[in-house]
Amino acid sequence: MKTVIIGANGAGKSTMFYHFNGILKPKEGTVYYDGKPLEYTRDALSDLRNKVSIVVQNPDEQIFSSTVEEDVAFGPLNMSIERDEVERRIVTSLEKVGMLEYRERPTVKLSYGQRKRVALAGALACEPEVLILDEPTAGLDPQMSQEVMELVNELCLAGTTVIISTHDVDLAYTWAEEIHVLRKGKLIYSGSPEPFFANTEEVALSGLVKPHTFSINSTFESLRGRDEAPYPRTNSQLLAKLSTPDAKIGVIRMIPFDKEISEIPQVCGNIGIYGSRTRRAVRESKTRVDYYFNAIEGCCLDAMSGLDSVLVYDIELESLVRDTISVLGKFGKVPEMI
């Protein structure tokens, strides 16, 4: 389940997160993990924090060690894990965030975006069951935000429960399966995003705005005198909904990446890549790529415009990629995937 906690600044998102791993103890009520109430003994909390990792908003608050690998190893070493296993986790987590080549760099030499990735790698190295990301895209440029969100998608697919806090309504609307809205420390809404964003008054009172795609869909359908549902969450879904039945839809050539990246066919149309392994291989081979980030959406938009495109993705993400494209069927025509 992709869960997003949204709320304006000061709504209590971070405070709530710190209840999830026992940093804060609730004055009223009980926090449950895996159906059991939290215990606040030293051992129980240590055990809980091995399972529930939090990546705080500001990486400087989370990075303690002088070098990247030392910081990533901090959590696993605190868990008294064998050195070989710690090494494996360092390599895996740094690979996932694309920072493996920086493993011996001093942390003070990294840019903000790189520090943010190292902070994420530090949490991933603990291999938690639940990963909580406090404003994961805050302070990142759009491309890096996309990269982080793609990584989060991979984690979700691998079975990690991911909870994100944000006040970026577009991000929340596009990504979340379930949202929880906080206002001045109170939970005012839980459920799928559409009913909440349809309620103009609640959105305004919560200090938020409606997502861009949601607003455009509402306006168009209101002008056309049609029902707003189904609600598109991405631009490609919106285009699929608005396109005419006789519109030409492009083809997406699907290439699961499990071999050398030099074998990408240099065909007409844009090339998109998806997945950390593919991205790394492309970086190394310096192959031409048009959609380095947000590639599924890029290829879908091309298809909606009648253009063909190529999508190369990590083979283990095949179901995620196909499912994401197939969602267009709820709104209109689905591009042919060959």
Binding site: S46, F64, E70
Partner: peptide, 18 residues
């Protein structure tokens, strides 16, 4: 904030060196 972040990462009063 550092105290909170350290606790989140299971700090046990000792900075281990990898």
């Amino acid at each position: 904030k550092a105290q909170t972040a350290l606790s989140c990462r299971n700090y046990k009063g000792y900075f281990p060196l990898y």
